[in-house]
Design a protein around this nucleic acid. Structure first.
Lengths: 229, 229, 229, 229
DNA sequence: AATGAATGAGAGTTCATTCAT
DNA sequence: TATGAATGAACTCTCATTCAT
């Protein structure tokens, strides 16, 4: 069922090497982008010989796809974890976004790699977005059932939320406060408070105002629907 | 300053050739992405020899940046034109988004090229987004002054709108109705009506609800602020 | 009889253009060397269009050869002129070398261009050296006839003198006093006095000592044998 | 510091390949000159793929400079070796020049490559001449101390000797007896005896005659001062 | 399991030369 | 006489991938 053919390591040493390569790949892809991320750079950073790479991956594309999948799994996990303790939809939503931004700050590779994926691996790109969106959809559907949001189309709204998260993340997390600055590695900040509040308020109005009678309290937790598989 | 800086063509033929190359570049970039858009492919499509390319552009990057600027100018123009006849902010907003989606459908290069620009030319990328956002900001500020929207931070909301437009455009214009299908060239559709309505309603609630007293009628036209320079 | 096919200009304007190109070529060749001296650079410096070049020269090689011939004619002329007023062989020799160094300082192209000619146009290279050497030979033969130098083989000695002039010229004229400095254009100095004296004394001993009885006074003028064709 | 700095080969095979490339480069440079010595030609002659070249050298310039250094080291070594058994300065000088001409005959690359170096790598060019000249200087200084030559300026005379060797080498070794013949590869002869004698006699007179009393016998050996580093 | 030398297709780019105007 | 747009072969260099050790 696995979609990318891989050569699984059979020894401890092998497993370690494989991990070293994937980790190196994350950094190299994040810093140089797919096109300029040479196998040489990756293996050098991983501390192994070039040939070793092909013991674990079929091609450059393979690591790329595995990395995207891996990061996707991890963001979704982070978002779920983040909103786990929330008692209201609103709280859960805020926690989810916060987790998303935090992850972005820590793993700029997610962003950068995904943005390039359009041409490198459309399949991986779609899978990535779709999976996150599915989490949003699940939450929104649940909220709609209990009347916590108005009569919206969960799928459309889910993509809208995805778009908001992505653009705000790019603008304030990756670019930092000064949009003119070069986005060097590690230069990631986090979303400033007032920006975060503005964004959440915007979303809340859009969702809550959908039904004129906001009397029903939401008691639902809000899992993003994503988890370690 | 560059030793190989190209001069603008001084003849009709030259001007035509230059245009042929830019046009070819738009299509090739859109279809293959920056990395795989070889000069060979571009000149073949343009019907000129490889060397001719360098008569008009210093490098692949140069055409890329010029193309991004060009497309940017054109979307902004399209958005302004689209919302020109609108009599209310709401109407203008709808017209603006419609124009945006229409442009995306016609020029998928805009999307695809910009998404890759993160690594290719961060400068061009930022300029592109920032300019569009500035249009949104101008509109929002004007609307806020006349009390047509609530007490929002125009800058933040502008980026939010940008994110919505981009993601919805990608999902429904570029991917089409079937998100599983490969996004071949020309496979672009337009945003389905109900999606468009859902998106606009979402935005409208978010903006209108910001002030509790929606009694003030908006009589303002709504220019997107973007125009032919 | 001319060895390089050329297209002679038939108008005044044409003559001027032709000269402009040759002059530009001298400078460009001197500064960049043959390989890096593009026609573009030459025509730009000459203030004409690229195509114009081929109205007057068959190829890059053609200008090169004509330039070498031209410079050769001019050094030989300078050397002859220089030693014209001399009354003794020694005086003539000194004047000839002085003129040679002075020309080198003023026309570094001579040196640089000739040194590259080995591969570009062996024919031109040999012609260049041979013609200068012929001048030396003529002088030496005359001097030997009148007993002003010992029993030397004029041809061998002529090449030896050529070698001395070339190396000293390179070392002190082209490199200047500081052999570590980069030989930028125009950085040419002239041979310092004490170096010149040492060199001439060296040559004088080598020639004079050949016959033990230096009683016969030389009354001969010393033409280098080279002149305006 | 360079991002693409090559590492020395760590295996026998690698070392052999590197040597094959350098050897091929020597021949190709000698035959075609720097400008026309394409990497393709070099690797073809070496019997390796084009890409292999860049495993060992950063660029064409790099091999060139390494080759010049290598040849320089070897001429100097040959000259020292040649004059090692000499018991008088004169003998040593003759042996040194002989070795120089012999090396030139065997390695025409030295000549041809160095002559082009003016534009390719001025640094390499100067280093080459300067190192040989230093050997001459050392010898001349020693000879002057023991009164074996007159009161000359060793530096100037050293450059003069260098010039003589170079020009004579070019004229009789590279061009052969018939200066009109094309200098094809392998067409190198050696300096004819009478030419050699004429040259040495010329030099001897110039040096010996510097002091009027040639009674002091020279007992000194004459090392050219150059050796394997 | 790991190495690293070797490959060769293909990239971007330059430039002498041609030719329609 | 002069232009300058167009050509295309040739160049240097990179890199994903293979394979003998």
């Amino acid at each position: 069922m696995s979609e990318t053919a891989r050569k699984p390591p059979s020894t401890k040493r092998g497993t370690a090497t494989r991990k070293a390569i994937i980790d190196a790949a994350e950094h190299v892809f994040a810093e140089h982008g797919y096109a300029d991320a040479s196998i040489t750079r990756i293996t050098e950073k991983a501390g192994v010989a070039q040939g070793t790479f092909y013991l674990y991956f079929d091609s450059k594309l393979t690591v790329f796809e595995e990395l995207v999948e891996d990061l996707n799994r991890r963001v979704r996990h982070a978002m779920t974890e983040g909103s786990a303790g929330a008692t209201t939809r609103l709280e859960g939503e805020r926690a989810g976004f916060r987790a998303f931004f935090a992850f972005t700050a820590e793993h700029p590779a997610l962003y950068r790699v995904v943005r390039e994926a359009e041409f490198v691996s459309p399949r991986a790109l779609k899978l990535h977005y779709t999976r996150i969106v599915e989490g949003y959809i699940a939450n929104l559907e649940r909220a709609r059932e209990v009347g916590d949001v108005g009569d919206i189309d969960p799928e459309v709204v889910a993509w809208v939320l995805m778009g908001i998260g992505e653009m705000v993340g790019m603008r304030w997390v990756l670019w930092g406060d000064d949009p003119g600055a070069a986005p060097g590695p590690g230069s990631t900040a986090t979303v400033p408070d007032h920006v975060f509040e503005q964004v959440m308020a915007f979303i809340e109005r859009a969702l809550a105002a959908a039904h004129p009678d906001p009397s029903t309290p939401s008691s639902d937790s809000s899992d993003t629907g994503a988890d370690q598989r």
